[in-house]
Amino acid sequence: MRDEQLLYCQKPIDEQLSWDTLLRREYRRFCYACSQQMIWINALHCSRCYRPQADSSVCLDCVRWEKSTYWSNKLSRNVSLLSYNNWAQDFVARFKFRRDVVLAKAFEQELKRMYARNFNQHLIVPIPLSEKRMIERGFNQSEVIARCIRTNITDVLIRVIHEEKTSKKLRWQRVAGRSRPFEVTDRKSVMLKNVVLVDDIYTTGATVRKAATVLLEAGATSVSSMTLFRS
């Protein structure tokens, strides 16, 4: 017989049996070392994009976005679970690039809770991958995360332009471009609906804003986004 293992670091769950074990079982998905390194965004952050900071005002990044006539009022707000630190980088590397798909399950409860608290009844739309990236990776990480929240999702976006990985671009390259990589396949389904986009990481917010643009054009009432990590 093998000991039960933690999902991510695959260390055995070797806690002493206590009241805590019975009452808080669901929380034991990360070992002590991991939970020490994870930074949950809960206290102070930008009220608009969840960027961790010292107060809860609107951050400079968001101010800059809203100044632009093209980009303003595209994205209502963003909500994220964790800060994108070294630990998160390793996690994403294993989840996305090593393709350990099941890891998304580690955040299932938190994602569900975050959705219910912020976006109850919103349509869930994952950020799509291009056909080429899909073949390369074999799964869409955003869709996997979205399906953790609810199995019934609205997968109406497609990516028509294959772009360089955003993680390899600089900020000005991400923000300056007004390319339109996304298209809505079924306009009826988003008409007059509140939509929440789901992605793995929010870095500058360019990707979700580009997706929001086409959704608003298709008639969505509002577009927000939620991501696992916020850098």
Binding site: Q10, R94, R99, D100, M134, R137, G138, F139, E143, V144
Partner: peptide
């Protein structure tokens, strides 16, 4: 996992040697 390569949603993968 839901595998795009084989189009099945019950494709198995090995986590023991995934690295």
């Amino acid at each position: 996992f839901d595998c795009y390569w084989c189009g099945r949603n019950e494709c198995l993968y090995c986590r023991s040697c995934i690295m």
